[in-house]
């Protein structure tokens, strides 16, 4: 509720700046104008938004699944840890966005290159957060498991993975926050659909109001996605306290 008030105040400031400076519409359109465009051009914006949403969701699913699998692999196999972990950590230094043109070259202008891009930006936060959780299992639990003659895979699946779920949840929250960035970067480099494509097209034609309208839709998508993921994770992990309160 307070967030809405904050947004309203920011919109009012925006409107005030436009009115006070008389800045041309193609530089900075007033918020009312953006809202009108959003309303009248929804038939154009909607399908593009759906494309971007599909890319984000597919990238999120794929990136989270691959990231979780990779984290469990390096947790379980010492060899994987020795050979993969250094590469994984070093590869974080590579700006993933620089790979976008190559991905478009390889996977084409369609949805695949954008899903791959989103997948890539999601992969690293998920792997590192989950792996960090998997290696920090409570020593007392590990002692208990040893005294019970635990078997390696049951130990991973019944103890280390559930114990690391809060860490995985942090990774997934971060993934939900960065997933839209990956999809839009992919669309900027080369696409025929999607909000990022729409923004570039509108920008080239000085339809700044359309750029802002697309941006607003993207922001709502991103916030909705994060909120849903956060709420879902809280419900799925009811034993974890947040701010001292459990669900």
């Amino acid at each position: 509720m307070r967030a809405l008030v904050t947004v309203a105040v920011l919109l009012a400031v925006w409107q005030g700046v436009v009115a006070a400076t008389g800045v041309p519409r193609f530089i900075l359109p007033p918020p009312g104008r953006v809202a009108t465009t959003l309303w009248s051009q929804w038939a154009v914006i909607g399908p593009h938004a759906l494309t971007t949403l599909a890319e984000i969701l597919l990238g999120l699913l794929l990136g989270a699944a691959l990231g979780a699998a990779a984290a469990m692999t390096i947790a379980q196999f010492a060899a994987a840890r020795r050979w993969l972990l250094p590469v994984l950590v070093a590869s974080q230094a590579v700006p993933v966005f620089a790979l976008a043109p190559i991905l478009v070259l390889w996977l084409g202008y369609g949805m695949a290159s954008k899903v791959a891009m989103a997948c890539l930006v999601i992969f690293f936060p998920v792997v590192l957060a989950f792996w960090d959780g998997l290696r920090r299992t409570e020593p007392g639990w590990l002692d208990l498991a040893r005294s019970m003659d635990a078997r390696p895979w049951a130990l991973l699946w019944r103890l280390r993975v559930p114990a690391a779920l809060p860490a995985l949840a942090s990774g997934l929250r971060m993934a939900a926050a960065v997933a839209p960035i990956g999809a839009v970067i992919g669309e900027w480099v080369g696409a025929s659909r999607g909000l990022g494509f729409l923004m570039l097209q509108a920008n080239a034609r000085m339809q700044t109001d359309m750029v802002f309208a697309a941006l607003a839709v993207l922001a709502v998508l991103a916030v909705a996605l994060y909120t849903l993921v956060d709420a879902g994770l809280r419900r799925a992990l009811p034993w974890i306290p947040y701010d001292g309160v459990k669900e």
Partner: peptide
């Protein structure tokens, strides 16, 4: 069998 000072129950 081993029993510790802390109960070591699994919270989930």
């Amino acid at each position: 069998a081993w029993m510790a000072q802390r109960d070591l129950l699994l919270p989930w």
